[in-house]
């Protein structure tokens, strides 16, 4: 195979890597082996190990090939290795699940049921959370996350963007629309205003995702309490400084004022200047 790899580089490039790849066949074989009905758990695990070895070999193969081609591609090959690892893990977990199902069809579906192997951290964690959820659901870590509706964005003409539910979002955050607006405009480096129906009109083209990202940053900086992570806060202005006070835990912190920063001159210049 190594000899094959040293065939003309051009050919290699011309042909996709897939037909050339000898390792794929290998994989298939291995998979077939696994799919054969095996009753003993240990066998399966052994085979998984085999698989892992072969996969790692593959990835090293890939590495070599790609290195010959271009040094730049090495990153991808690294990814490949990672991928292989992930796949392997996934496979392992699947196998384990199957084990669990096969052996204990009863109510407690614990992956280690029936086997005498060591527990894994994730499994034990999972179990703890299950118990916690059953007995008192309030204590589970997934606190009611603040759900915000995604920003609805329309295009007005080609050069302007309308943020439709701007007011709604401001209300859910309990923030002054002006404050949110200044932040958005400063971050996007454009100008804009509120129109008659209290929508935000921004100059420039922006996707909803962009708004979402900026709003997320706004919430992190100006809404969420640092201590308890609750969004139940109010923004107070005290002698020119903005302070964020949490309604839940009573803590307060100062927040940075919004500065527009440098805005380059875009567009046509006046003929005079």
């Amino acid at each position: 195979m190594a000899d094959d790899a040293q065939v003309d580089l051009k050919e290699e490039v011309a042909e996709a890597v897939a037909p050339f790849d000898p390792s794929k066949k290998k994989k298939k074989k291995k998979k077939v082996v696994i799919e054969e009905p095996t009753d003993e758990v240990e066998n399966v695990s052994e085979k998984i190990e085999n698989l892992s070895v072969s996969e790692s070999l593959e990835s090293t193969f890939g590495d070599k090939k790609k290195k010959k081609k271009k040094p730049v591609v090495t990153d991808f090959s690294n990814d490949d290795i990672l991928d292989a690892g992930e796949r392997l893990e996934g496979g392992e977990i699947d196998e384990e699940n199957e084990e669990g199902k096969g052996i204990s069809l009863g109510t407690p579906q614990l992956p280690w049921e029936g086997t005498d192997r060591d527990y894994k951290y994730e499994e034990i964690l999972y179990r703890v959370f299950n118990i916690l959820r059953e007995n008192n659901p309030d204590l589970t870590g997934d606190r009611r996350r603040t759900v915000m509706r995604p920003p609805q964005v329309l295009r007005e003409g080609t050069k302007k963007t309308v943020f439709v539910n701007f007011m709604d979002l401001c209300k859910t955050m309990h923030r002054q629309p002006e404050h949110v607006m200044t932040f958005l405009l400063a971050e996007m480096g454009t100008s804009g205003s509120l129109d008659g129906q209290q929508r935000l009109v921004v100059k420039g083209r922006f996707a909803p995702k962009n708004f979402e990202g900026i709003l997320r940053r706004y919430i992190n900086e100006y809404v969420i309490c640092n201590g308890c992570k609750s969004p139940d806060t109010i923004l107070i202005k005290e002698n020119r400084l903005f302070f964020l006070r949490c309604e839940q835990c009573g803590s307060s912190r100062s927040v940075a004022p919004i500065k527009a920063g440098f805005v380059a001159r875009v567009g046509r210049r006046k003929p005079g200047t």
């Binding site: 420039g204 920063g261 380059a264 875009v266 567009g267």
Partner: peptide, 16 residues
Amino acid sequence: VHVRTQQRNGRKSLTT
């Protein structure tokens, strides 16, 4: 150090 971007006409942009 603030790194910003600004939209220009079309899909062009500036970084400051």
